[in-house]
Amino acid sequence: MALATTRRAPASSFIGSVWRSTVGKKAVMAVTGLIMLAYLVAHMLGNLKVFFGAGEFNHYGQWIRTIGEPFLHHEWFLWIARVGLTVSVGLHGVAAYQLSRRDLAARPAKYVRKRARASYATRTMRWGGVILGLFIVWHILDLTTLTVNPNAQEGHPYENLVASFGRWYVDVFYIAAMLALGLHIRHGFWSAAQTLGANSPRRDRAFKIVANALAALLTCGFIAIPIGVMTGVVS
């Protein structure tokens, strides 16, 4: 039998073939994950203005709506960011769901003798991701749409935030979600570097250090806010 000497034209489009492949789908997860991570760094740094009082925090909240003016209309930047983040969360979640289904189906018969496998952060990626997804829904209902906020004053994010974190169970859920976020980023950032082919034996250690630093920074930065409210530093 002779080998084929011409190559068939690819049957599907670039996006289709990448999405169907496990490697391509992981790349989609890596890129959307990095987009969300970049947003979280900005979000955390902006939120820390809560420690400078209501005036500065509420002014920051107003400024977000004016980014890009006069090139962009009022609030357009905000909506572009919201659409971008929603698409990222959606693609990340759908890809994770499809890959997880595939991964679980790839071993129909389990081992009789089980062994502890992988680090805690690696093992909790799936359920941690589900927790973070639920947290995002609640977080938007609480502080964006104000549907479940006890204060619910439009244009007064500082007062809404203080009112929300005045409830102990909200603080507990928030802190738990931020710990889940830290674990997710600890494995996720390094994993994204590996998936996108940016990692190498020489860079491996650096990527792991940056992943741990980002995880610690974001978790501590976000948790500082409910702790500030609970201790009365922010009121």
């Binding site: 496990t22 992981k26 890959l99 679980l104 990626m125």
Partner: peptide, 15 residues
């Protein structure tokens, strides 16, 4: 990679 996926192997989670 296409053949690997077609055989029903799982994906990599960098474990």
């Amino acid at each position: 990679v296409g053949a690997m996926d077609a055989e029903g192997f799982g994906g990599c989670t960098n474990t």
